[in-house]
C-alpha cells in the first residue's frame, strides 16, 4: 500500500488500474483521522446504551445460544467480570484512539473487545442487524498506517502525513465501510424475497402496520387508525431504497450528499414512527463524506493566532 501526496497522484488508464482505483482509491488520511474520532466516540455511546445488554446477560446464562463465531472461539456464557473487562478495554481503547495515542494499537484492542462484546450481545436470542457496518469500521480502521496523529485537541500531524496525504490503505478502509453500509440495505432484500415469496408480496403486506402496533409511537398508532393506506406506498419506497442502494457507491458531489440525506431521512422516519434508530449504521454514512474538510475548533484557533 502506498502513501502519496494528492499533488503527486495521477490517474492511469487500463482495466486493472481502473479496478484498483475503485476498490483501493487513494483517499486522504485526514479523512481517516476524523472518521476515527466519530466511530470510536460512537462505540463508547453504543456499549453504554444500545448494546449495554451484555452486562445484564451475565444473569441470563439460560438464554445463551452462542453464534457460529462464538462457538468457533469456544466463548463461554458471559460473566459479570468478563463483561466489565471487555467494557473497560473498549472504553480505554476508544479514549486512546480518539486522543490520537497509538491509534492503530488502541484500535486493534477496540476491534477485538468490541467484536467479542457484540458476539455476546447477540448470542442470547435476538440478532441485531444494525451493527454490521460499525463492526467492519472498527475492524478496518486500525489497518491504516500513516494516520497516527492528531485529534480533537488540534495537535499538528507529522510531516509524513500532512492534511493532503492520501493512501490506498485509507481508501480501502473507507471503501470497506461504505460497502458494509450499502450491503446492510441491499442484502436485506434477499430475505424479503425468500420469506415473502416475492417482493410484491412484501411491498403489499401489512408489515408496517404490524410494526406500528407492536412498537409504534403515538404518531404510528394514529396512522394505523386514520391513514392506514399510507403504509403500502411507504413499504415500496423502503424497498426501492434498499434495492437501489448500490447506486450510491458511484455517486459523487451533490448527488451523493442528497442520497446520504435520503437514507438518513429514512432512518429518522423509522425512529419517529417505530423507535428504530439504526444509529450504528447511520453513523457509518460518514465514511462517504469529505470529512477532511472539517476543522476542529482548537486547530482553527491555533491557525488564527
Amino acid at each position: 500500500m502506498s502513501t502519496t501526496s494528492a499533488a503527486a497522484s495521477r490517474p492511469s488508464g487500463g482495466t486493472r488500474p481502473r479496478l484498483r482505483s475503485i476498490l483501493f482509491p487513494a483517499l486522504p488520511l485526514a479523512r481517516i483521522r476524523v472518521l476515527r474520532v466519530i466511530i470510536y466516540a460512537f462505540v463508547v455511546l453504543d456499549v453504554l446504551t444500545f448494546s449495554r445488554d451484555v452486562l445484564s446477560h451475565a444473569n441470563n446464562a439460560g438464554f445463551y445460544t452462542p453464534l457460529a463465531l462464538a462457538r468457533l472461539l469456544h466463548l463461554p456464557a458471559v460473566t459479570t467480570p468478563l463483561a466489565y473487562t471487555l467494557l473497560v478495554l473498549i472504553l480505554a481503547g476508544c479514549a486512546a484512539a480518539i486522543a490520537g495515542r497509538r491509534p492503530r494499537l488502541s484500535g486493534a484492542v477496540v476491534a477485538l473487545a468490541f467484536w467479542l462484546w457484540m458476539l455476546y450481545s447477540n448470542s442470547y436470542g435476538y440478532i441485531a442487524h444494525d451493527h454490521m457496518a460499525l463492526m467492519v469500521a472498527v475492524a478496518v480502521l486500525p489497518t491504516v498506517a500513516g494516520a497516527e496523529s492528531t485529534g480533537p485537541a488540534g495537535t499538528l500531524p507529522p510531516a509524513a502525513s500532512t492534511s493532503t496525504s492520501t493512501s490506498e490503505a485509507a481508501g480501502w478502509a473507507l471503501r470497506a465501510i461504505q460497502l458494509a453500509v450499502i450491503a446492510t440495505y441491499f442484502f436485506s432484500v434477499v430475505p424479503k424475497l425468500l420469506y415473502s415469496g416475492s417482493l410484491a408480496n412484501w411491498g403489499n403486506s401489512a408489515i408496517l402496520t404490524w410494526a406500528s402496533i407492536r412498537r409504534g409511537s403515538a404518531l404510528a398508532h394514529w396512522l394505523v387508525e386514520v391513514t392506514p393506506w399510507v403504509f403500502v406506498p411507504a413499504q415500496w419506497a423502503g424497498l426501492a431504497l434498499e434495492a437501489l442502494s448500490p447506486v450510491v457507491l458511484f455517486l459523487r458531489g451533490r448527488a451523493l450528499y442528497i442520497a446520504v440525506a435520503l437514507y438518513l431521512g429514512f432512518h429518522l422516519s423509522t425512529l419517529v414512527l417505530l423507535g428504530i434508530h439504526f444509529l450504528p449504521t447511520a453513523i457509518c454514512w460518514a465514511a462517504f463524506l469529505p470529512l477532511e474538510r472539517l476543522r476542529w475548533p482548537g486547530r482553527r484557533a491555533q491557525h488564527s493566532r
Binding site: T184, K192, Y195, N204, A206, I207, T209
Partner: peptide
C-alpha cells in the same frame, strides 16, 4: 439481514 422481512398478511 432479515429484520422486518416476513410480510404480514393484511
Amino acid at each position: 439481514l432479515d429484520q422486518f422481512s416476513s410480510g404480514t398478511d393484511p
